[in-house]
Amino acid sequence: MDRPPLTAFLRTWFRLLTVQASWNYDRMIGVGLGYAVEPLMRALPGGRDGERYRGAMQRAARYFNAHPYLTGLAAGAFARAEHEQVPGEQIERLRTALLGPLGAVGDRLVWAGTLPAASALGLALSAAAPTGVGAAALLALYNVPHVALRVWGLGAGWRRGTGLARALATPVLTVALRVVGPVAAVGIGVALPLVAARLGGALDVAAWLAGAVSFAATWVIARWLAPTLGGVRLALLAAAAVLIGTGL
């Protein structure tokens, strides 16, 4: 098996940064994955004019979906399987088998964990530290694990190939999945009073009262009455009510 050159891995890694650019309802990120993994296929026997390359690229852009940061795992594993001349049907089965786990792990680890935790830290520091520190902290806390995850993903996918499932069972990932949600919830809890104090610092008592009533009403509506309405729609309705009520 010819290992693709390092530049091919770098090309794939950078292309994976745009994996969702052509997100669509038919193939989801399949086209993006095909685009990203292509440099790793060039080293297949016969090169870009070879039968293996054509077959691999035919499979590469089919339907696929996963968390974008973990798509590198899939890209590495598919490329490795193609290089090991694993039968196409088996690669298709691997593709299908990865859909659920790569989405679920990424969603819990990143969207429901790292991102809200970084956001909470950014909010707390924005309220308590000089201008710009909060935004910088958010970017730093979020992007260190983000980039690390992408780098690890492509490498682990290539190393594991069709045995990729083991990569998702690493202790670091398991522990992170367990603690990241509670950490984010605590972080948001810490940030909220600081943000309320900072944003409400210039408000008088009557305005604070209006804010408290809208907080309580939103909590009740979002928790029990209309959970799918969403904060933005609620806010726009509340804004319209305030403007009309105060005689716009």
């Binding site: 948001i188 309320a196 409400g200 305005a207 939103t218 904060g231 609620l234 305030v242 105060t246 005689g247």
Partner: peptide
Amino acid sequence: ATVLLTAVLVGVGLATAAGNA
């Protein structure tokens, strides 16, 4: 009205964030 609007939108935002947590 702009002051009330500020308070209401911050209140809704705080509840939204708390609900997400």
